[in-house]
């Protein structure tokens, strides 16, 4: 079973991963975006870990709802409302249970991913975070490790795609050949589930 502590560890591990990979995310974003993805997420997830420590939410749903709200208010780029919506909707779908099982989490995360697609209007293949998140949710039934692999493969598979959403889409064919920064950070977020589970 997954409790509030598990989800706190998930957010802490995600913050550490974003810190570790911030330069790489920003480098990817400077190729096809505005070179702020790493620093934006660093600021956002640092604020998430701080507010989780301060408010100490007691349920899985409350942890993710608070984290999502914090991302929306602190990131300052499109990744704020998108990741914020992902976590907040996932959190709301988990309700007020003190513990949830992996299957309940998988169902809730799919609700979150659907909300991200509705908000940004992106579908799989558009070279966005959706390209890592959808395969990850599809694989979540086989465990966190399988979800991580699927997300990483999904992110790598964005390299040959032409961007159809966001600022990168203005580049047209010139967006081809670069890995999408949002799909890359989404893979980090999913990989952080494995770390949270190992602790």
């Amino acid at each position: 079973m997954l409790d509030a502590d598990f989800f706190r560890r998930w957010m802490t591990a995600a913050a550490a991963a974003v810190d570790r990979e911030a330069e790489r995310l920003t480098a990817l974003d400077s190729a096809i975006g505005d070179a702020d993805h790493g620093s934006n997420l660093q600021r956002g997830f640092a604020a998430v870990t701080a507010v989780l420590e301060k408010d100490a939410p007691q349920t899985p749903g409350a942890v993710l709802t608070l984290a999502g709200r914090q991302l929306i208010s602190t990131v300052g780029g499109a990744s704020g409302p998108l990741y914020g919506t992902l976590l907040r909707r996932t959190g709301k779908a988990l309700g007020e249970a003190a513990e949830v099982d992996e299957e309940q989490f998988a169902v809730a995360l799919r609700t979150g991913v659907d909300a991200v697609m509705a908000l940004g209007g992106a579908a799989p293949g558009d070279k966005t975070m959706v390209d890592a998140l959808v395969p990850a949710v599809d694989a979540l039934g086989e465990g966190f490790g399988a979800a991580r692999t699927a997300a990483e493969q999904g992110a790598e598979a964005t390299v040959p795609l032409q961007a159809r959403k966001g600022r990168a889409s203005y580049l047209g064919e010139r967006s081809i050949g670069h890995q999408d920064p949002g799909a890359t950070s989404s893979a980090l977020l999913i990989a952080a589930l494995v770390e949270a589970d190992d602790e």
Binding site: R69, I72, G76, G77, A78, S79, G80, P81, L82, G84, T85, R88, A115, L119, G120, G166, R167
Partner: peptide, 14 residues
């Protein structure tokens, strides 16, 4: 553009 639109939408959904 982009995040301006998305942030307003996310706040409305909130």
């Amino acid at each position: 553009l982009g995040s301006a639109v998305l942030t307003v939408k996310a706040l409305l959904a909130e």
